[in-house]
Write a protein that binds this DNA or RNA. Structure first.
Lengths: 239, 239
DNA sequence: GAAAATTTGTTCGTATGTATC
DNA sequence: CGATACATACGAACAAATTTT
């Protein structure tokens, strides 16, 4: 009995072959990484893929759903449609990242610290156009300081501009995702006095970015100020 | 008929109702964001979900494939199985991020600059245990300097430890994803002299992290050194 | 602008492997 | 070990959408 039990649980047996649809996902994913598939590459219709992989159409569908969810393929219906390797869409992906952060319970603290790291690098890579965009974003925010919702959105615009000044898509994508996690859809706490304080901090950040260094210190101070008031955290945290 | 045609082309027309499976994905995703579903929450079997949503099992399957691909649900078969909201798995996510960076063509340059931003923050948040781990990683790397593959892996370990010292899961996940994009599976170029130079740079980074500031400067110098030699870029870039 | 062709979206039915009880 | 519950997989078919003709 015991022997039979051991045999039936043969240790040599590798994890059984993964699901067929998973194998298809892995295959296509690998071909993207090794460069044999690039954005725009045509994969075929569901029926063609089913035939070429020797599986049913539903199995192919399962695989395409997974690939589509990771943003690796785009699917179009109609004549000439089918599955193609997607162009990169970091925004679409930021959503998936936001989901993971939500599950992980990544909160305001980690978000702001990551933001600080991202924006601190802008000072090192910003060019003249970046500075003009940042300056414009600041002026726009000030012009709508009386409108909490508009001011909040303008503040987001400022931070996005800062991230873009880093000229680094990885960091930009991370910031967009982080903002998606915690940015309140409507922020009614940005009262005029809060707006004035936020504006002051933002201009300090801008000045240091313009100087080309020290942005990290400004961000750290920004964060420190936020922590002074738990109640005001949500209002100021993302401005 | 004509009226119908005009209506069908009405510019005000919002994006038409999304596919049923997409609606299910959105619904579950939203319930995770609003907190009514948390990791471990049981969603039901495919049949139960099909019944409760009023759609076929295959439509539910499509939705579950998408949710599973984003790492939002875990599926188990067998009695007592079914779909549950997943625990967070930032590693799994890092893979999806890596795919996007691959599609976007994010390369060595942006990777290193992002890495610099990530690791620079470690100096601000490291504690005593972090320093011990970092020191251990450095010693381990030095002890295998004669073995290119082992040294490369040890160097990765050092950088991961640095990222972990930032105590920020967003940054840790970003680093893991970036490394996945560009880390060579085998690095045969880490000759002893290269290893010695890398070791020196790493110890400089460590010293500044220990001091609690200035890590960014060390990283920047690291990057600058890498750029001196295009040929040696791949060997040194990720050490 | 309308018809035709192509492809995805969706459903039902059925069979099989697998994990739990 | 058997029974049960569940995901995985296949086949056929129709509806809806989109491009091409």
């Amino acid at each position: 009995m015991l022997a039979a039990t051991f045999i039936s649980k043969a240790p040599l047996r590798l994890t059984r072959a993964a699901a067929l649809s998973s194998q298809i996902v892995t295959e296509i994913r690998n071909r993207v990484f090794d460069g044999s598939l690039v954005p725009g590459s045509f994969l075929g219709s569901e029926n063609e893929l089913a035939k070429s992989f020797g599986v049913s159409r539903i199995t192919v569908r399962d695989a395409l759903r997974s690939l589509s969810a990771m943003g690796l393929v785009k699917i179009r219906q109609g004549a000439g449609g089918g599955a193609r390797i997607a162009e990169s869409d970091l925004d679409y992906f930021a959503d998936a990242l936001a989901v993971q952060f939500q599950l992980a319970g990544v909160g305001v603290d980690e978000t702001l610290r990551a933001q600080s790291a991202i924006e601190g690098t802008a000072a090192e890579h910003r060019n003249h156009e970046d500075l003009e965009r940042l300056s414009g974003a600041l002026d726009h925010a000030r012009s709508v300081a009386h409108d909490p919702a508009a001011f909040t959105e303008a503040s987001l615009g400022f931070h996005l501009a800062v991230a873009e000044a880093s000229r680094n898509r990885a960091l930009i994508a991370l910031l967009r995702a982080l903002r998606f996690v915690v940015w309140p859809s409507e922020n009614k706490r940005a009262t005029p006095d809060v707006a004035a304080r936020v504006d002051k901090t933002h201009r300090e950040i801008f000045a240091r970015i313009e100087a080309g260094a020290g942005a990290r210190d400004a961000m750290t101070k920004h964060l420190g100020g936020i922590r002074l008031s738990k109640q005001k955290q949500h209002a100021e945290a993302f401005c």
